[in-house]
């Protein structure tokens, strides 16, 4: 028996309990950061409200929305774009919480996260859960304000049925941000993320106009919208607000979640990792 020379101290180690502590810690930190950054919360709330109060009011007369599922009566334009704005909140949040790790002096935060002894995939999932929790807070704050603006689902139960949809769309958009954060070092600031990711995804979707209208205008654009995962995030949320499930959208969002998350794991995996190929997440920062 070779007596090990290493002093073996009792360690918190890799236990299920420790993993739970780790997950809670990551969510707790994200929540604290969110509370401390009032500006972030405010802009997350004001952005969709500007769309709702100003844009939608202005376009109400111009853009008629015929009766399409899940709506059973003619709805106001404000009501139509609300799900799109909810998805926009999550899109911003997903990209912000993931990409902010790459710049914004947050470079080190990723390093600290990754030296945790827990498996990489678990750390990435924890990070995503934290982001989802924050995005859901933002969404409900938005829904509360919208409620007083008379933008509300037919049945209050919609506030509850939308929750699982929010978890899924939050996961998809957060995983997309994570995967992007490791791949694109070109996206050096949030302005280029807005230009190259957020705006195209948001406008080429069913967030602001029903797809049949897009189809009338341009078939290629219609096809792009159909292939845009964001369209399906919007539709999933739209139907869930009315207590219904849009199966196609559910399938697309679920599949995209898996693909984006697999890409994130691949990118952050030490052996296959893209981080290794380009010299670490802070290589561009030097």
């Amino acid at each position: 028996m070779s007596a090990t020379t290493v002093e073996t101290r009792p360690r918190a180690g890799i236990s299920a309990r420790g993993a739970l502590i780790c997950l809670t810690g990551i969510v707790w930190r994200e929540g604290l950061r969110f509370l401390h950054q009032r500006g972030r919360f405010l802009s997350a709330l004001v952005r969709p409200l500007v769309w709702l109060f100003i844009f939608a009011a202005g376009f109400r007369a111009t853009l008629g929305v015929s009766i399409i599922p899940p709506y059973e009566t003619y709805v106001l334009y404000e009501v139509y774009i609300a799900p799109g704005l909810i998805a926009m909140i999550q899109l911003f949040n997903g990209l912000q919480s993931s990409l902010s790790m790459v710049y914004d002096r947050e470079v080190g935060a990723m390093r600290i996260l990754l030296v945790s002894p827990y498996p990489r995939w678990f750390l990435l999932v924890s990070k995503l859960i934290a982001g989802i929790a924050v995005s859901i807070l933002q969404v409900y704050a938005f829904l509360l304000v919208a409620y007083f603006w008379d933008v509300q689902p037919d049945d209050p139960i919609g506030y509850l049925t939308v929750l699982p949809a929010l978890v899924l769309t939050g996961f998809m958009l957060g995983a997309m941000g994570l995967a992007m954060s490791s791949v694109f070092k070109q996206l050096e600031n949030f302005a280029s993320v807005m230009n190259f990711v957020i705006f195209p995804m948001f406008f080429a979707s069913s967030a602001l106009y029903p797809l049949w209208r897009v189809q009338q205008a341009s078939i290629p654009l219609y096809n792009i919208c159909l292939w845009n995962p964001f369209t399906h995030a919007v539709e999933l949320i739209r139907f869930a607000l009315y207590g219904q499930i849009e199966w196609t959208s559910l399938a697309v969002v679920a599949c995209c979640s898996v693909v984006f998350f697999a890409a994130a794991i691949f990118a952050y995996d030490p052996s296959t990792g893209l981080t290794a190929r380009r010299g670490g997440p802070d290589a561009g920062a030097k």
Binding site: C22, L32, D282
Partner: peptide, 22 residues
């Protein structure tokens, strides 16, 4: 690189790190 969270308190930073180690 500096890796502390500037917005959080010293102790919160330490508690976060401890959580990462279970």
């Amino acid at each position: 690189a500096r890796t502390l969270d500037l917005e959080l308190t010293v102790l919160q930073n330490l508690q976060y790190h401890a959580a990462l180690h279970g």
